[in-house]
Simulated assay, not measured.
Amino acid sequence: MAVERMDHVGVIVEDLQAARAFFEELGLRAVGEATVDEAWAGRVTGLPGQRVELVMLQTPDGHSQLEVSRFLTPVDEAGPEAAPSNRLGIRHLAFVVSDLRGTLERLARLGFEPVGTVEDYRGIYLLCYVRGPEGIIVELAEQTGDPTGMLG
């Protein structure tokens, strides 16, 4: 049995509205909101008694979704850690944007700055990492050339 498709990526945040504003500024759009507190959800996550607020955001092409959630209970006492880009585990989300520099300007107005610098990858992409809400690293890429064989 093979994977049919990737459905979504889930991100947990403390400030749901700030995270939503960040991702909407990137061009994602909300396609649903919910509060989930049914017993089945706690059994799935291993967190009995959980209560979660979430928003589903979809990319403009309609192919990918991002689930941004805030746990009302139980609360993560450790809080977010702004880990470096090489920390083991899931480290970043990547989005293709049409205007990298314009996107960075809009995000800067919201208080989000690049992790490093904007760089040209082999004449194919302009790339940049931005530290988004709660330390989430977001890679932004503006396609400037033909990506065929870029990893070869």
Rank of each mutant, 00 (worst) to 15 (best):
E139Q: 13
E119G: 08
D61I: 07
T148G: 14
H92S: 01
A39P: 15
L72F: 02
L140A: 07
L107S: 03
V68P: 02
I137H: 11
R91V: 02
E38G: 15
E53T: 10
D120I: 04
T45I: 08
E81V: 15
G111N: 02
E24S: 09
E105R: 11
L26M: 08
R106M: 08
A108Y: 07
E139W: 00
V3K: 04
L72S: 05
R101W: 05
D76T: 02
P147L: 06
H8Q: 09
V130T: 05
I90Q: 08
D99C: 02
G102P: 03
G102N: 01
G152M: 09
E25K: 14
D37A: 14
Y129D: 00
H63W: 12
L151A: 12
P133Q: 03
R29V: 13
V97A: 00
R91W: 05
R87H: 11
E113H: 15
I136P: 00
A78E: 13
A41K: 10
V52M: 10
G102W: 00
D146S: 10
G123Q: 02
D146G: 09
E81D: 09
T144F: 09
Q143K: 14
E113M: 09
L110G: 06
S64L: 08
E81M: 09
D61E: 12
I12N: 11
E81T: 12
G32Q: 08
F23K: 05
G145V: 07
G27L: 03
R122K: 15
C128S: 14
A19I: 10
R87Q: 12
E14H: 13
A94S: 05
R106I: 05
P60G: 04
R101G: 15
L110D: 07
E14A: 14
E113Y: 15
V13S: 02
F95K: 00
L110Q: 11
D146N: 13
A21F: 03
A94D: 00
E105S: 10
G111C: 01
L54Q: 14
D37E: 11
G149Q: 07
E142D: 06
G32D: 08
V68E: 06
F112R: 01
L66H: 01
G46N: 06
N86F: 10
T117E: 15
L104K: 06
G145R: 08
I124W: 08
S69H: 05
E38A: 12
F112L: 00
L66E: 03
T117L: 12
R101T: 10
A30Y: 07
P114Q: 01
L126Y: 06
S98V: 07
L127S: 07
E142T: 04
V115K: 02
L28N: 10
P84I: 03
D37M: 09
V96I: 14
V44A: 13
G145I: 09
G135E: 03
E77P: 11
L151P: 00
A78Y: 10
F71G: 11
T45M: 09
V138A: 03
T144D: 09
L93H: 00
A18N: 09
R5N: 14
L47E: 12
E113Q: 15
I137S: 11
R29F: 15
D61Y: 06
G123M: 03
F22W: 03
I124L: 04
W40Y: 11
P74S: 04
P60M: 06
G49K: 06
L93C: 01
P74D: 02
